[in-house]
Write a protein that binds this DNA or RNA. Sequence first.
DNA 1: CAAGCTACCTGGCCGC
DNA 2: TGCGGCCAGGTAGCTT
Length: 276
Amino acid sequence: MPEMPEVETVRRTLTPLVKGKTIAKINIWYPKIIVNDPAEFVKKLTNKRILKIDRYGKYLLFRFNDDLTMVSHLRMEGKYHLVSPDTPKGKHEHVEFIFTDGTALRYDDVRKFGRMHLVETGTERKTTGIRHLGPEPNTAEFNLKYFVDALSQKKKNIKNTLLDQTIVCGLGNIYVDEVLWKSKIHPLSSAKAIPADKVKNLYQNINHTIAIATKERGTTVHTYLDANGEIGGYQKMLQVYGHAGEECSSCGTILEKIKVNGRGTTFCPHCQVLYK
DNA sequence: CAAGCTACCTGGCCGC
DNA sequence: TGCGGCCAGGTAGCTT
């Protein structure tokens, strides 16, 4: 699933493939991918040029001339790849941007969960899903004091708190399980009950894990691929996600898998302390 | 407003 | 072999 390191890797690999290209034509094969009116989406983006691609959290921000930004979220399985326009349409390809240079960008998404939202540049933090997001890891805004204060007001469990993107954005199910294991915090711990030294350790692990995973070009466990169709490298470094039933690499206890608010959650029942 | 629940989707896997 | 049921999970939108 693309979490922040994967989306950043997509941004980096996709940019050289499309930067500076002008859209000649857009084909929308599954209109629900487009937030708001697909016809207006096509009309506004036709003949526009991609200036660059930015990112906030797990959202890609395609910047066009004429103050247009396409906010794209890959959700679980969304992928972009560049093809020749005469390539037969794949079963799960839903949107195609044909460029004036004779190449085409296709959006592929088996589960059709991804969304593209066209807004005026500069309004994206108020008009799209980005408005609900807290700061990104490894930024000045995401400092230790902020994180301690924010957690101290959260009544729900720490797993859900880190998944909901409002205190810190960019972590998904995989990295939340990893950072909680590294921090020796049980996923069902009450966020506000975690001791200060453990919160500091969690803070450091969030920043470090996201940085290392980004350097490794993300994690491929199911279907994630970058814009060149290549897998990530971080899956070989996963300690708990996907390792339920195996021994904890720290203490040897068998890792358990439970459901936390409907999400599969793997943890070490010995290492990870439950704070209530 | 915080928190919790479910819909959105399809493919893969399991049991029968 | 085929089929029903469950699981995977990020976010929007709803209810409480």
